[in-house]
């Protein structure tokens, strides 16, 4: 590790504060666009934590995949479903929030107890640092070859599945005007009164 350890500690404090506050903002902010951008900030801070943990390749993958792909995908989804709607009040919302907050606090206490009472085998072997990328490549093409190939199949399936799920199909047409009653009618002012199957 080339960074001095005190610098490392200060970086850890700042990055973890950014992660924690950003995550709270993602969950609690009423405007979902702000949440999405804060989520990008959380992803970047987590990438910084990976750099502190001697993992430059995974940090780069985190920035590319999460910030570059997942966050942009979420922003597009917000843009596509951007309808201002006032959500109806449901009874017992405050009680539900309190109960789930209690459950989460209990889970947090349990996790902290496990983290601080388990006798970890510290100090472990010396981290290999910059050699990590080479080691990951060796792993991916020797003992983790099968999961690596399965991941490509999974990504292909996810791609085709996403296309099939998000495609607009015209299943019926409006009897009165004859125009196709696809889901684009949602954006139009008028909903069809009577639908007729076309196929």
């Amino acid at each position: 590790m080339t960074i001095a350890s005190s610098t490392q500690f200060v970086c850890f404090v700042f990055l973890s504060a950014a992660v924690a506050i950003g995550a709270l903002g993602v969950v609690l902010l009423p405007n979902i666009v702000y949440s999405a951008f804060l989520l990008g900030g959380v992803f970047l801070s987590v990438a910084g934590l990976y750099l502190l943990l001697n993992a430059s390749f995974v940090a780069a993958a985190q920035v590319l995949v999460y910030v570059g792909a997942v966050n942009v995908l979420i922003l597009f989804a917000i843009m596509l479903v951007n309808k201002q709607e006032t959500m109806a009040e449901i009874p017992g919302l405050r009680l539900r929030r309190l109960l789930s907050g209690g459950v989460c606090a209990g889970l947090f206490a349990l996790l902290l107890r496990v983290a601080f009472t388990t006798p970890w085998a510290l100090p472990g072997p010396v981290p290999i640092g910059e050699e990590a990328t080479i080691r990951i490549g060796e792993h991916l093409f020797s003992d983790y070859l099968l999961p690596f190939e399965l991941a490509s199949v999974l990504l292909l399936m996810a791609m085709i599945g996403a296309i099939v799920l998000a495609r607009r199909d015209v299943f019926s047409s409006d009897v009165a005007t004859g125009e196709p009653a696809d889901q684009g009618l949602i954006e139009k002012s008028r909903t069809p009164l009577l639908l007729e199957k076309t196929n």
């Binding site: 983790y144 399936m157 996810a158 799920l165």
Partner: peptide
């Protein structure tokens, strides 16, 4: 780190399918 890469892959697939749903 190898496991983290696989988790990132699955998360990307999950995000795509989830947003399509």
């Amino acid at each position: 780190q190898v496991f983290a890469i696989f988790v990132i892959t699955v998360a990307a697939a999950e995000a795509a399918v989830g947003l399509a749903i």
